[in-house]
Amino acid sequence: MDTAIFFIQVLNSVQYGLLLFLVASGLTLIFGIMGIINLAHGSFYMIGAYLAFSLTGLIGDFWLALAAGVVVAVLIGLALEWLVIRFLYDRDHLYQVLLTYGLILIFEECRSLLWGDDVHGVPVPPALDFSIPLTENLSYQVFRVAMSAICLALAAGMYWLIQKTRLGMMIRAGSVNREMVQSLGINIGLLYRVVFALGVALAAFAGMLGSPVSSVFPGMGNQVLIVSFVVVVIGGIGSVKGALVAALAIGFADTFGKVLLPQIAGMVVYLLMAAILLWRPQGIFGKA
């Protein structure tokens, strides 16, 4: 492999990994803090992509559409937590799986009613729709670089929120002792609603941000859901740091798997998961 191609694959790996991180971090937060297995998490990624498609068409500007889409996603998250999810906290995982699986079906049906079953595309924002030449005949699209930069900024923002703010302290405290948090005068119901909405917004944001480089199509959430669960399991359930490391590992494994081992490309990610779980059954940053 020559250096330019290698470099491009590294950039692709990072970009895919970081986008995956946005989806998986929400999943791991919701599972680690609230104890909810949310199968509908991939649907939020899909909803994001369709929102980007519609809102970009409506508003005309991708970035404004992104901002509006985040607002919509937060509202969906708040409403969904209030309507459905809050009844699941004290229930067995089986109920959570059944109910959130039901949500997938509902979201897919709504998607079909609202947008139909065609494949759509979102145009790359014109300001970033050019490429940096790497060699005479290889170049890399600037929008993809911007995507990675935005994901990194969001990851840094999440680190700050969780590690440095009082809200983050309450969130971390809530993951170990719900009753004690309440007895300190903190409204845990509201805290959970905020965390859930944050997770929904992150997944939807990833769907929106990724929409110009992938197409917008039915069932796109399910693919992402499975890989995101792989990320959460590898990284250690509940660990945002673990999700970042695992998402990048998956990004590299998937991208380079397709280049170096095309015959088994579909398996590489799962082989990696199996290997890591053999080494650390609780995941890289998971607690035993």
């Binding site: 302290m169 971390r172 405290a173 993951s175 170990v176 002792n177 009753e179 004690m180 309440q182 007895s183 300190l184 005068g185 903190i186 409204n187 845990i188 119901g189």
Partner: peptide, 28 residues
């Protein structure tokens, strides 16, 4: 009333078995 409202009315509880948050620093 919900427990957090009662806490906000001025009742603080130090439970048996302590109830510190081990994953937070002392300062936090």
């Amino acid at each position: 009333e919900a427990a957090h409202r009662i806490a906000r009315m001025g009742v603080a509880y130090v439970p048996e078995g302590r109830g510190i948050f081990p994953n937070l620093s002392v300062h936090e």
